[in-house]
């Protein structure tokens, strides 16, 4: 009994907001003005939930850092942790395949192992020593979030590209002490006015 989980983990996966995809280097791919507005709306929404968040883990890519900078303003005192594990990539070859997106095979080996490591590292039931329910925010990327959702629900991971996520949207997973997983919301962006919703 000492090794049994007792708490529930709430995982909030946030897709970064709209960014300038023209830049060649990651540092040049900064948020657009609309992207900054979207992040404000997401931050406002998260704050309005009235939850005491435990931490914000974010991808080390520029667009995720900038999204986190804005969201953090609405969640004062919540610790931020940067990780390379959550960087964008090609998690697994999608089925059915798509013609407009064909990464090299080696990309799946590199990114796939890393994104799977991110899943195992961050998505699991609470440790036995965790006494209270936790609420954690992960600011990352569409492919990473879609893969994590497939893995967490034990759905075939190669189906990840059949889902679509808006910028700044909120995906909420609940992991019970029994290990049961519920997807409470997928890509919620209903808190944004329609003209500010994008998927770039």
């Amino acid at each position: 009994d000492n090794f049994k989980a007792r708490a529930t983990r709430h995982i909030f996966l946030i897709r970064h907001s709209q960014y300038n995809s023209d830049g060649c280097l990651d540092k040049d791919r900064t948020l657009t003005e609309l992207g900054r507005e979207q992040a404000e709306l997401t931050g406002c929404r998260l704050a309005s939930l009235g939850i005491k968040f435990d931490k914000i883990v974010h991808s080390s890519m520029t667009r995720a850092i900038e999204t986190t900078d804005i969201i953090s303003k609405y969640l004062p005192g919540v610790n931020r942790i940067s990780t390379d594990l959550l960087r964008e990539g090609a998690p697994i070859e999608p089925d059915p395949p798509v013609s407009e997106w064909k990464p090299e095979a080696r990309q799946y080996y590199e990114d796939g192992a890393r994104i799977e490591a991110a899943f195992r590292n961050f998505i699991h039931r609470a440790d036995a020593k965790q006494e209270e329910d936790s609420y954690e925010i992960f600011v990352c990327h569409a492919n990473v979030i879609r893969y994590i959702v497939c893995r967490a629900l034990q759905f075939p991971p190669e189906g990840w590209l059949r889902m679509s996520l808006n910028n700044g949207s909120i995906t909420h997973l609940v992991i019970r002490p029994s290990g049961r997983v519920a997807l409470r919301t997928l890509g919620d962006s209903g808190f944004m006015p329609p003209e500010k919703i994008t998927r770039t």
Partner: peptide, 20 residues
């Protein structure tokens, strides 16, 4: 292929592999 994905829920899904 990661995970069971055979339609049967694996309640030990997060205990089978090291976390990282």
């Amino acid at each position: 292929r990661p995970g069971p994905c055979n339609g049967v829920w694996d309640s030990n899904w997060d205990k089978r592999e090291p976390r990282s």
